[in-house]
Simulated assay, not measured.
Amino acid sequence: MIFRDDYGDGYFKSITFDFGVGIIIADCLLKKDLCIEFTKEKINPLKLLFNLNAPITLLGSDIEHRLTRLESLMFSPATSESQTLKFTKDKPTTFLCIHINRKVFEEKLEQFIGDMSVDLETLFRDLNGINKFYYKSFYTLEISELIEEIKSCDLSDFMQSVFLEGKTYEILTLFLQQFTEKRNEPDDLKLLRKSTITKIEAAVDIIKKELDIRISVNALAKRVGLNRNTLQAGFKQLFSTSVNEYMRDHKIERAKVLLENSDLNITEITYKIGINSEAISQNYLKNATD
């Protein structure tokens, strides 16, 4: 749905895949407040809502969840309930919602049920969505990047469908992995402040733009205005990895691109990714070619 000029600028798009999986993607600036109601259904789908911009509010009969930027909500109200998503005018609205009909999705999951965690098996075995369930958390910046890839997809027809379905399953996999890990380690969870997330994103930009420069965690933390421990904890929560591992992975990916698409020799490539030691550079390049 493309909005008319009098209602706002932007779009809401709904796309359906096989096995009961589909997505709603939105990127718009509304001129009026907007509410979308999910009506009561006999088979209640599981929904995963990822907010990328201005706050979104989910209202139910006895609940209210407000999602700020980079917050997610996995939810399935009881079959007797309806829910309403509320969006505010004059604020940029960007979100992705994955919805899963668990009764249809069961065919895809059946061979994996024995290998799933108890939490996931309980969640997906509720085929009709009878039990009420809400799980709110921050999601990783890796998921945010995948959503941006979905938004910017310029393919069409069959290729578009394959691309979007693949990215949707990548997001689903990363989110469920994060969900399982956090359910097993509840004492380690701390909500990140919005200002902290912004500074971590600034650190990510520095890493990506300055791959040819060797930068320590302490120096990076100082540049974005965080202490080392907060930066490390933020990367762990948003990326499930340490700062140094994140740097290493991006250097390896950059080395792969240069090896495949440039005429640079190995020495030139190592300088391009900020690796000067021969022993270390050989290890990086080995990983890049594996």
Rank of each mutant, 00 (worst) to 15 (best):
F3P: 03
F3H: 09
R4I: 02
R4W: 01
I15S: 05
G20W: 01
V21N: 02
V21F: 01
K31W: 02
D33K: 04
C35I: 09
T39I: 14
K40M: 11
E41T: 12
K42L: 05
I43S: 00
L48A: 10
F50N: 06
A54E: 10
I56R: 10
L58W: 09
L59I: 12
H65V: 13
H65M: 14
T68V: 09
L70S: 12
E71D: 14
S76D: 03
S80H: 12
S82W: 05
T84N: 10
L85Y: 12
F87N: 11
K89F: 03
D90F: 08
K91Y: 03
T93F: 04
T94C: 08
T94L: 05
I98D: 05
R102D: 00
R102P: 00
K103F: 00
E110Y: 06
Q111V: 11
F112V: 07
S117H: 04
L120W: 02
E121Q: 10
T122V: 09
F124E: 05
D126T: 06
L127H: 00
N128V: 01
I130N: 01
N131G: 04
N131H: 12
Y134S: 10
F138H: 15
F138I: 09
L141E: 09
I143T: 15
I143A: 13
I143C: 11
E145K: 15
E148V: 12
E149T: 14
I150G: 12
K151E: 15
D154L: 10
F158K: 15
M159P: 01
Q160N: 13
Q160D: 15
S161Q: 14
V162E: 14
E165S: 14
T168M: 14
L172E: 13
T173G: 10
L174K: 15
Q177V: 11
Q177K: 13
Q177M: 14
Q178R: 14
E181G: 06
E185Q: 11
R193V: 06
R193E: 07
I197L: 08
T198H: 02
K199N: 10
V204M: 08
D205M: 05
I207H: 05
I213R: 08
R214E: 06
I215Q: 03
A221F: 03
K222G: 03
L226A: 00
N229G: 01
T230G: 01
Q232V: 01
A233S: 08
G234M: 03
G234R: 00
F235H: 08
K236C: 02
Q237C: 01
L238F: 06
T241A: 08
E245L: 05
E245Q: 07
Y246E: 05
M247D: 06
D249S: 11
K251A: 05
A255P: 05
K256V: 14
V257L: 09
L258G: 03
S262M: 07
S262N: 07
D263S: 13
L264A: 07
N265E: 12
N265C: 12
T267L: 06
T267D: 07
E268R: 05
G274E: 07
E278G: 01
A279M: 05
Q282E: 04
N283W: 00
L285Q: 04
N287C: 02
